[in-house]
Structures are given as C-alpha cells and as structure tokens.
Write a protein that binds this DNA or RNA. Structure first.
Lengths: 150, 150
DNA sequence: GGTGAAATCTACCTAGG
DNA sequence: CCTAGGTAGATTTCACC
C-alpha cells in the first residue's frame, strides 16, 4: 500500500469503469501493472465493491430525509426487533448509532412527502421500542458524496 | 423505463462489475439486450457513475461523524464563502441543508478523534459566518448504504 | 514490463410482435 | 416501428514469460 495504490483508489472512486490502460496513463504506469494493482486492491479488501450510482430523482425518489429515533427503553430485545424492522425496510438506506441524544440516525428515501409521513407514522413510530421520532427533510445538497480522502 | 430496467438498476447498484451475460442470465434476457439496456441507462442519466466503494477503516479513516452547523447570519456572501471552504475540504464528504434548526449537516471522515477536533475547532468554527457547531460521532452502523429502493 | 490467448463489449444484421 | 436474439470484429483482461 503505497502512494500509487492510494492514487488508484482515488481514481476508481470517481470512475471504476476505466480500463487498466487508462489507469496506467494517469499514473505513468504500464497497463499490466495498473491492472495487477487494481486486482490486488480488490482481493485484499480495500475495495469493498464496485457499484452503479443511480440518480435518485430520475427514479422517482425526490424526497430524502434524516430521521432521528429515540428508544423508549434500552432493553436489547426491543432494539434488536427494531433493527430487524429497519433492515427489512428498503426506504431506510442507512442507520447509524451516534454519540449524544438520539439513539439512531436514519437516512431515508421516499417518493414524496406523503410517503415519508407514512413511513414515520405508520412504520417507525408504532414500534413498541420507539419513544420519539424527529425527521428533517433534505432541501438541498451543496456538496454531494465526494470520494474518501486518501 | 420498464420493470426490466429497474431490475437492472437494482443489480448494478449491488455489483456494477457483472458481465452483460451474467446480467442476462439474472433477467432471462440475451447478453445483447442486457448490454444494450445497460448502455442506454448510462447514456440517459439513470446511472450517474460507476464507482469503487473503498473500505474506510482499511485506509485509516476510522472516525466518521455528523456535524451540524448553525450560521451566525443568513447573509448570502457569508454562506457562499463557507460553502467554498467545505467544497475544498476533502474530509467533508457530503453537505446537506435541512428543514429545522441547523443550517447545514455535514458528514465527515477523519483518521482519529484528534483530527476531527482539529477540523471542527481549527477549520469550521473559526469561519466568520459560523455561529455554532455540534458534532456527533458514529459509534456503529447497524445498516449501511443499501441500494436505492426501486 | 511485455505478449498472446481468452473473455468481453459493441456494433450490425435478422426476425417477430 | 420498436424490441429481442445472434454473430463477428474490436477491445480488454489476465496468466505467463
């Protein structure tokens, strides 16, 4: 793992579809070496996956929101059940546990505000382990999903 | 844009490295058609990019945090300058403007807690347009970055 | 780092609804 | 007319030197 490997990761985070030859050109490296290094980075777990990033609005997901959830009790079985619910709910893209007040932070995608309200009031709030839910809707995204800083 | 296209987007969000033949097998479609549909989805903007997802911990980014920022004034020139700062700061991965109290929500990556503190106290807080900063560190991620629900 | 075989992509062509 | 499937040439990968 040297500076060249980090540069490869930087490039592949922006475009994973490049050929080994194009990678090599950007790095002053032969296509053989670029391809071999890329394969090694994938095999050794630096690259978890290569995925397509889909335009959310283009597929009808125009509302993005962050939802903070406070649990009624910190009993493990209640939390487990709630996490299973989140895991099975496709509109919930990510779940984090944070320091501070809220127990969970959720990032969710919905088609419209009504769908978000349904998710919050019909799915999340009714769960017995949940005490309080506060959702904040994304109005704008001045900086979006830049690659990891290497 | 039919159900087959949506299924292709679902598959490519999980693994964009599949061959057209593998895609076709999963869809009961010929490799020709699978490849052509994929090309069309890329050309028409449904697929913004195909990127490598790098393991953050593996590259030394062990601290992830959400930072809420409140501005001192809502004057446009101050906000512009602050956003330029965020744009130029690689540790800030994403910036959202939300409904509710905080003006901005930031998602940041740092090598350790000291680096996070440096970012908050030496970079964000000193900016003249910023009034208050509250950072919440990610302790765990029970559900991570699932594909968009199509 | 280079080379050649194997795999893959990407036109083009034909057929069917 | 649009969409599906097949085929061949070009491109890319990958194991070996």
């Amino acid at each position: 793992m040297d500076e060249t490997d980090r540069e490869i990761l930087r490039l592949l985070q922006r475009d994973a579809g490049q050929t080994a030859e194009a990678l090599g050109r950007a790095l002053n490296l032969s296509a053989s070496q670029a391809g071999r290094r890329r394969a090694r980075l994938e095999a050794s777990g630096y690259i978890r996956a290569t995925v397509a990033r889909v335009d959310p609005v283009r597929v009808g997901l125009s509302v993005q929101a962050f939802v903070q959830v406070q649990m009624a009790s910190h009993a493990p079985e209640g939390a487990r059940a709630f996490l299973r619910l989140l895991e099975a709910e496709p509109r919930v893209a990510s779940v984090w546990t944070l320091t501070g007040e809220a127990d969970y932070l959720l990032r969710v995608w919905c088609g419209d505000l009504a769908a978000l309200n349904t998710l919050v009031h019909q799915v999340l709030l009714p769960h017995p382990a949940v005490a309080r839910v506060q959702s904040q809707i994304v109005m704008d995204q001045p900086k979006r999903d830049s690659p990891l800083p290497l």
